[in-house]
């Protein structure tokens, strides 16, 4: 039934274009998978994990950014029913709130990120980019994962960090020499490893496989290998990580990370950075001049990635840096 005055639904501001395409024909009942302050994860009727992010979150694969400040005010909980219908998603709420929470996807801006190509970069550029990112990480990166244990950390953290480094070395050695068996062992040594909600090993793999998935990469055998491995050994990590890794293997990662890669590849973070925060009066989109990161721009972009999660950003960047270095190494001097 149409509400004559306008349906009280929450507009989705933007969303992963592929996901929006999928939703346009998706009908049925799913459920709320997990609820965080700024993100709610849903399971679609087909069991795919998708994310509803709050206003101001960057675009990301399988993610819709909705016009809410935070989800904490909506009394959602894991297991609540979700109805997928044309143009909207309805989330059941606690009985006290009577009505379902309706998200209108119709007006959402579709985010269709294009992965930048590494092919045209001159020799040495990848290494320089990697060094620059690594430098910023060393100064600002959070410890406790790939970047090393925190000072005074207990034996458990130390052991995890050791295991992360062992896995990383094994994986990089496998990729470097093209030995599939070693590469596979390396992936399995990292998958699901690490403290916190998103295992650091998975974040590292995400950064690494992103580089491998970019057009013109010499590591193009790695994404299919990782995908195959996830298909059979996906139980070794969390559902969230599994979704993130599968997308990254196709060159699809959250906009902050993709923006950084674009900046490194051609000095222009096209379509990257935090998503538009609704009509922002008076600020016309600033034209970014092409041709190499401006002073401070790389710094800002890396800091944006570092801000992801508690230590996830640092681990993602570790993977990215390792991938860029490996790429440079495999290209060899021209």
């Amino acid at each position: 039934m149409e509400d004559p005055i306008g349906a009280p639904s929450i507009p989705v501001l933007s969303g992963d274009g592929r996901l929006l395409d999928l939703l346009s024909s998706l009908r049925g009942t799913g459920s709320v998978h997990s609820v965080f302050t700024r993100v709610v994860n849903l399971l679609t009727p087909g069991g795919t994990l998708i994310a509803l992010a709050a206003r101001g979150s960057g675009d990301a694969p399988r993610t819709l950014v909705a016009d809410v400040a935070a989800w904490s005010a909506y009394q959602l909980g894991a297991g609540l029913g979700v109805t997928f219908a044309t143009g909207n998603i309805a989330l059941d709420r606690s009985p006290a709130l009577r009505r379902p929470l309706r998200l209108a996807t119709a007006g959402a801006r579709a985010w269709r990120p294009a992965a930048p190509s590494l092919a045209p970069l001159p020799p040495g550029a990848l290494a320089r980019a990697a060094d620059a990112v690594a430098r910023i990480c060393r100064v600002h990166g959070p410890l406790g994962g790939m970047l090393g244990a925190r000072p005074g950390a207990g034996p458990m953290e130390a052991a995890v960090v050791r295991a992360l480094h062992t896995g990383r070395d094994l994986l990089l050695a496998g990729l470097r020499t093209g030995e599939e068996e070693r590469t596979r062992d390396g992936v399995l040594a990292l998958l699901g490893l690490g403290p916190g909600l998103t295992p650091a090993g998975d974040d590292f793999l995400t950064g690494l496989v992103l580089v491998a998935a970019l057009p013109g990469s010499r590591l193009d055998g790695f994404p299919p290998l990782l995908r195959d491995l996830l298909a059979v050994r996906g139980d070794r990590t969390t559902a969230l990580s599994l979704a993130t890794l599968s997308e990254a293997a196709e060159g699809r990662v959250r906009s902050e990370l993709l923006g950084l890669v674009a900046l490194l590849a051609h000095g222009n973070p096209t379509g990257a950075g935090p998503a538009a925060t609704g009509p922002r009066p008076g600020t016309a989109p600033a034209a970014t001049p092409g041709g190499g990161p401006r002073p401070g721009e790389l710094h800002a972009s890396v800091r944006e990635v570092l801000a992801i999660g508690h230590s996830s950003g640092g681990d993602l960047l570790s993977g990215l840096v390792a991938g860029l270095r490996l790429e440079e190494e495999l290209r060899g001097p021209l």
Partner: peptide
């Protein structure tokens, strides 16, 4: 009647 989720208060854990 309700808490307005569009306008929240940080000190009250982002309660509307």
């Amino acid at each position: 009647t309700a808490r307005n989720p569009n306008v929240t208060i940080p000190a009250l854990d982002f309660q509307g």
